[in-house]
């Protein structure tokens, strides 16, 4: 057992995958709690599609993928937030509109340049080989910034997630922090996108939060539990991907799904006990 783990970690690409993956899992779990509670989970999904379009364009231009994708997705995040808050258009419809458009643009660009090849397949479903060593540096730096900002603004994020009106009434600039959450989410999604796959990255945001909420009763415990759960699921998933040569993203999602099932059952048992007492 230990031997196989040591062997797995002797490959530089696996070390890279673990480093970036663990950091991204942490970020997405923390942000996910707010997104799920604020009914913004669809934004995560929308952003990943925009990310796909950006990656495709970056590949066509021969530009560095992160350098193109991060600004594009950040702008899209701010835009999506504005749209879903304004009452003119229904939020979910607007998100679907933007995300499918971005996907379509991406597919058009790809088919006119490189054509559908394994790269595209990897964009969609993720690959543990995705991270180059320059990417790792940038990813580590950015995810540490995301984590630091989250911890720094934790109390304010709690307040606007719980009751935006009250927070605003008492002088918290809710719009500012909503935008902050959206921007941090955008960065996190771009960082995790190529490893997890654009179709699956949003699960990293939604699953840990939903799973933790089956059992945990306080915001803090939900946050901590999500963070730990997310990292554990990622590590198991990526190992599965390594041993069985399955796509990284799909493996991680399946592990998350199993965890959700376990937590749901535990939650139900707890409820039952309470009723019996």
């Amino acid at each position: 057992m230990i031997h196989t783990i040591v062997e797995m970690l002797s490959y530089p690409f696996m070390v890279r995958a673990f480093t970036v993956g663990i950091l991204v899992s942490l970020c997405s779990a923390l942000l996910g709690v707010s997104l799920v509670l604020k009914r913004y989970s669809m934004i995560g999904d929308g952003l990943s599609h925009v990310g796909f379009g950006a990656l495709a364009v970056a590949a066509a231009l021969n530009a560095a993928p992160l350098a193109v994708a991060i600004p594009v997705v950040v702008v899209a995040a701010v835009l999506l937030l504005r749209v879903s808050d304004s009452s003119k258009m229904k939020g979910d419809a607007a998100i679907a509109l933007i995300s499918t458009s971005a996907l379509a643009v991406g597919v058009m660009v790809i088919s006119m340049t490189t054509g559908m090849n394994t790269d595209v397949y990897n964009y969609m479903f993720g690959s543990i080989l995705a991270m180059s060593s320059e990417d790792v540096e940038m990813s580590v730096m950015l995810s540490v910034i995301v984590l630091a900002l989250y911890i720094f603004f934790y109390n304010k994020i709690f307040a606007i997630t719980f009751d935006e009106t009250f927070a605003q009434a008492t002088g918290v600039r809710a719009n500012l922090y909503n935008t902050l959450i959206a921007v941090l989410t955008a960065v996190t999604i771009v960082l995790g996108m190529r490893m997890m796959g654009t179709l699956l990255i949003s699960s990293l945001i939604i699953f840990p939060a939903l799973t933790s909420m089956r059992i945990c009763k306080t915001f803090r415990s939900v946050i901590l539990n999500s963070a730990i759960l997310s990292v554990v699921c990622f590590c198991i998933g990526i190992s599965v991907s390594y041993f069985f040569a399955t796509p990284a993203g799909a493996s991680v999602v399946v592990v998350n799904l199993a965890m959700l099932a376990v937590y749901t059952i535990i939650g139900l048992i707890k409820e039952k006990r309470k009723i019996c007492r």
């Binding site: 509670l37 945990c216 306080t218």
Partner: peptide, 19 residues
């Protein structure tokens, strides 16, 4: 407009008034 399924302890909610 606090949502029904929000996980937060009473203490966390009260403390957020100090923000």
């Amino acid at each position: 407009d606090v949502q029904k399924d929000f996980p937060a302890s009473v203490y966390e909610v009260v403390l957020s008034g100090r923000l």
